[in-house]
């Protein structure tokens, strides 16, 4: 079981991320027992079969960087969890996908970052609306992960609005003009 970060603390995860290996078919792959996060292709191929599980809170869907979040527009209220995969930490598409899910599509459930999730991106991930951060298993020791919580609050008053604080700094805080003196 990998550890996840949620609400500013480390938790033991209860979910399994299902990834299709070469040769696996979305329509036929056997789902692991327990709570599972399936690829979009599996969800789309077997929506009717999986919908009750989603509604029961034990099945979520993950999106790859090239997948359009509006594909899930009709399912948002049924899904307890959507994950976005970061194939490489430097691949920033997931930030826009998360932002769209939260702001454009109004998704309110758990939004989880999976894949190559590193502590130096935690701050950005939270700002874009991710509620759970899941570093790769064994990436960090328990002590390192505890230390990594500091990265969640690298910056206390960011300039621009984002999902976590929609208003930009100039609307959130009183910023003062400077009074000029004649030269």
């Amino acid at each position: 079981m990998s550890d996840i970060i949620k609400n500013g603390r480390v938790h033991v995860d209860e979910w399994t991320v299902l990834r299709l290996a070469e040769g696996d078919e979305a329509a036929t792959i056997v789902l692991p027992a327990g709570r599972v996060i399936v690829p979009l292709a599996v969800w789309q191929a077997r929506r009717e079969e999986l919908l009750p599980k989603a509604e029961a809170g034990v099945l979520g869907v993950w999106l790859a960087g090239n997948e359009d979040p509006t594909e899930l527009a009709g399912d948002l209220s049924a899904l307890p969890l959507i994950a976005v995969d970061f194939p490489k930490f430097a691949d920033g598409r997931g930030y826009s996908i998360a932002t769209l899910l939260r702001t454009r599509l109004g998704y309110g459930g758990e939004l989880r970052a999976i894949g190559n999730v590193l502590r130096d991106q935690f701050f950005f991930l939270l700002r874009c609306g991710f509620s759970v951060l899941q570093p790769q298993e064994d990436k960090y020791t328990p002590a390192q992960l505890e230390a990594a919580l500091a990265s969640l609050i690298d910056f206390t008053e960011p300039y621009q609005g984002a999902v976590d604080r929609p208003e930009p700094l100039f609307r959130r805080q009183p910023r003062r003009p400077l009074h000029k003196e004649a030269a």
Binding site: F89, D91, G92, Y95, F124, C128, Q160, A162
Partner: peptide, 14 residues
């Protein structure tokens, strides 16, 4: 400058 500084969505562009 302020808007783009640590813009969380655009920190890892192509």
């Amino acid at each position: 400058r302020q808007w783009s500084t640590f813009h969380p969505e655009f920190a890892f562009l192509p």
